[in-house]
């Protein structure tokens, strides 16, 4: 059986790739994709520990995470639409009017 550390490292790697994407890209759509990576990194952890503890709760819960991701994308796409309509661009660094 693959040691749990490997899964965790994989999960951490996926998570950090997602974070990296968020930090270095400006396109809002890429943001959404990066967020998917973050969520799935969490899913890897859930499934790995589910197997590790011999209990199905983690696996079941990862399904809910997927559903949540779907909801998030639906809203996210809507937000991106509004963003595009108001700023004629999907560059998140341009939409800086909602600060002080």
């Amino acid at each position: 059986m693959v040691p749990i550390e490997y899964y965790l490292l994989l999960s951490a790697a996926v998570f950090c790739i997602g974070v990296f994407g968020i930090l270095t890209r400006k396109n809002a759509l890429l943001f959404l994709m990066s967020v998917e990576l973050l969520l799935n990194a969490a899913n890897i952890n859930l499934v790995a520990f589910s197997r590790f503890h011999g209990n199905l709760t983690g696996q079941t819960f990862s399904l809910f995470t997927l559903a949540l991701a779907a909801a998030e994308v639906a809203i996210g796409i809507g937000i991106i639409l509004v963003l595009y309509r108001n700023f004629a661009d999907v560059d998140v660094t341009k939409a800086t009017t909602m600060r002080w």
């Binding site: 974070v19 968020i22 930090l23 270095t24 400006k26 943001f31 998140v92 660094t93 939409a95 800086t96 009017t97 909602m98 600060r99 002080w100």
Partner: peptide
């Protein structure tokens, strides 16, 4: 508070 999402994300990270 720059209003740039990336900066917030950087600070969070």
């Amino acid at each position: 508070q720059t209003g740039v999402v990336s900066n917030y994300a950087f600070l969070l990270t």
